[in-house]
Design a protein around this nucleic acid. Structure first.
Lengths: 207, 207
DNA sequence: ACTTCCCCTATTGTATACATTTATCCAAAG
DNA sequence: CTTTGGATAAATGTATACAATAGGGGAAGT
């Protein structure tokens, strides 16, 4: 419900209300809220009441900077451990991204799914449970993914090209190269987000 | 119980058994297990049974590498945001560490407490909720802290000196310096752990 | 003797009732 | 009119009962 935008920043998340809305009891709701709190999607006050977390631009900037570090590290490890089968999967994945963004109208949902798959494959190849656990907290941020619908064609194409660079680095098992490309890739994604976000704010202003 | 060594790697964590042992019902036990699972102290099988997580040397190495990155970043941010009051607190803290390790017998518990306080203050000054959340997963690893009881005097003294270097970097608001010192500090801590760990294994071998 | 299938037990998931704590609102006093 | 106090209502914490599911052990057949 948070990811789909049904709930927005600051909304109260009473356990009983959610339980009724979902047709279950409070017990599984409590479990879910704890999990979402760990993922920073839900904020809890000192008196243990839950609300949909608010993400300022500074927060998003923070998250991207951390992602740049951690996914860079993941790319380095992945490059050192890359095998042929996985490399082929990644290539197929990026090919699918190319198809999705090359139509007259970019297929954003497919782009997002395949993009997620691409990064997930790299993370898996990095084979560090701790790293996966940490990045899990950062990557599923709704405020970020939703703005992709406002990306420019250039942003999509640049993203695809950077993925290709990553593939070259993986092919040569060049860890530092992969790390540098990935860090740049994430930082560029932040600016793409930032631009798209400004665009959305301007639209709302006009309306 | 995991931290104190009362439970060891692989032990089963039945909810009912823990509830009886702790004198509470299963409900708060379940909450605690979920939290500990997020902190990687507890592992759950695909059928949702809980066990005390096992940490190999590779796992610990991973954790330290991630800590070096993230605490380095925290130190950089802290240096940029450091104020006089916090700096004084940090100095007092490191002074207390000095006292604890300078006796004929090093007071390891005080060292650990103050060390934790030192790093917690820096993390707080970095003022990034996301960063705090991520590092929270990595810092409370029992396998790491327990080996401190086997550190050499040199290891303690080096740690104290590196804290002093950090304080200098903070005083000058030199982010990159602080980051470099902290990264080195954590990496050295890993080798101190590694040495102490080998020592413990040798002891066990002899017995 | 080994394997396979089934039943029983143990463990976790869920619902609900109750206890405890926190917030809100209204009234009374300064 | 503002503030403070308490009473009331609402939300979370905890306990317990029941349901569903996974695991283990025993019996039977090969």
């Amino acid at each position: 419900m948070i990811l789909s935008g049904e709930l927005s920043s600051g909304d109260a998340l009473g356990e009983e209300a959610l339980a009724e809305k979902c047709g279950v009891s409070r017990t599984p709701i409590r479990d879910a809220l704890r999990r979402l709190e760990a993922e920073l999607l839900v904020r809890r006050t000192e008196s243990q009441r839950s609300f949909v977390a608010h993400w300022s631009l500074d927060d998003v900037s923070d998250a991207f900077e951390l992602r740049a570090m951690l996914e860079g590290y993941a790319a380095k490890r992945a490059a050192e451990r890359m095998d042929d089968a996985t490399l082929q999967q990644l290539k197929a994945c990026n090919k699918a991204i190319w198809v999705a963004i090359k139509g007259t109208e970019a297929d954003v949902d497919t782009f997002l799914d395949r993009n997620r798959e691409f990064h997930a494959l790299i993370l898996e190849t990095a084979s560090s449970r701790r790293l996966s656990s940490l990045l899990g907290v950062l990557i599923e941020q709704p405020v970020i993914w939703r703005t992709a619908h406002h990306y420019s064609r250039e942003a999509f194409e640049q993203s695809h090209k950077e993925h290709d660079d990553l593939l070259s680095a993986f092919e040569r098992h060049d860890g530092p190269w992969a790390e540098a490309v990935m860090a740049g890739h994430i930082r560029r994604a932040f600016h793409a987000y930032s631009d798209a976000h400004r665009g959305m704010l301007a639209e709302r202003e006009a309306a």
